[in-house]
Design a protein around this nucleic acid. Structure first.
Lengths: 210, 210
DNA sequence: GTCTATATTGCGATAGAC
DNA sequence: GTCTATCGCAATATAGAC
């Protein structure tokens, strides 16, 4: 079994394009720049992509599915905890994901307008699904009397706003590590719900063990 | 003295352009669309603007100055209150401004990349000034023992993220009135600082009067 | 001020040789 | 797969008549 050291050209194109779209925006990025970033001439691009729009769709496509999968997985892994444990697990993964894949999530939010109607609708629907998923966690914590919910949708908007903003500026090696960012913003989110700070709070699993 | 009923053409162009830039983005908007929105043909635009870039600069130009002026004014009007009163006044105006002038503030945040370097630097510096202004209010409230500050810069990032997000979706006639939005998001912001909810809190002026 | 042309540039995408 | 050359088009911006 041979190890594949050579980089897949199509992936190199997507990665280069993602960075360019992040820095300059989709419309302001030319395929000549994308080709250049991948060490190609523009004509050669079309051996790997169908069109510029399709390239954007490829980049934006998986990001929300990945997000839902990752956050859903984190919540599943927190099974057995109370409703705030679940929400906290979701928030931590939500923030982690947005920071780790900052460029893609930023593009996913900023370039919705650049997608043709059909593709855009698909993405919008997925985002609505994701927000509804978070909303249910918030509502549950409120119903359980563990969180002081002002308006579940607005709380979710707040989480989304924070994470989207982070995706715009976070870079490894900055003033805060990824772990610090996650801890700080999770605390902020829980404070908005008048839940005791994450660091102070003892989850149900730990309580049961004590 | 005659009342000028006729609309200024240059202003009509800026307003139409702002709406188009908000809806479709700067790069995706053509000057033919801008001209059409103002009831003109594309050639006539150049009697009122220098270039497309300059038009964007005009639209983005005043918005941060206006923001700093409005929020600064609100803080000045709250003089005599304690440090949380001042912060609360700033937050309420901060949110109000972003909701009232949603399209312009959204453009101001989203289209920074579309500005040439020089203009961009000017805008970035003004934003830094504004954020520093808010940061000082947060720090002061912390020093006074009235707020539990995790990190002043992050708290300001949070305020900016929330307001920017609001500017992306708020429209009059929606689920919440402007006043409700302001009240909710001010409460969220103060909760992040572990300050008693705005509605519960009695400002220093009222306390003195009692 | 308005308009109809048009100059010029650079884009996405394609053709065809290697 | 790579490349060079080019097509067709639409963009910003300009010229000049009214």
């Amino acid at each position: 079994m041979t190890v594949r050291v050579e980089r897949n050209t199509a992936q190199a194109i997507r990665e280069g394009a993602a960075q360019l779209f992040f820095e300059r925006g989709y419309d302001a990025t030319t395929l000549r720049q994308v080709a250049s970033a991948a060490g190609l001439k523009v004509g050669s691009l079309y051996n790997h992509i169908d069109s510029k729009e399709h390239l954007l769709l490829q980049i934006m496509g998986g990001i929300i599915d990945d997000l839902l999968e990752r956050v859903g997985g984190a919540v599943a892994a927190a099974e057995g905890g109370d409703s705030v444990d679940l929400l906290q697990a979701a928030l931590a993964e939500h923030i982690t994901f947005h920071a780790e894949r900052a460029q893609e999530t930023f593009i996913g939010n900023a370039e919705l307008r650049s997608l043709p109607q059909d593709s855009r609708d698909v993405v919008i629907r997925k985002r609505a699904d994701y927000e509804l998923f978070l909303e249910k966690l918030v509502t549950a914590a409120g119903k359980d009397g563990l969180a002081d919910v002002i308006d579940a949708k607005i709380h979710v908007y707040s989480f989304v706003a924070q994470a989207t903003h982070i995706a715009g500026w976070f870079k490894p090696g900055g003033r805060f590590t990824l772990e610090e960012i996650v801890r700080i913003y999770t605390r902020l989110a829980l404070r908005e719900l008048k839940v005791a700070d994450a660091d102070e709070r003892v989850g149900k699993a730990k309580r049961d063990a004590a």
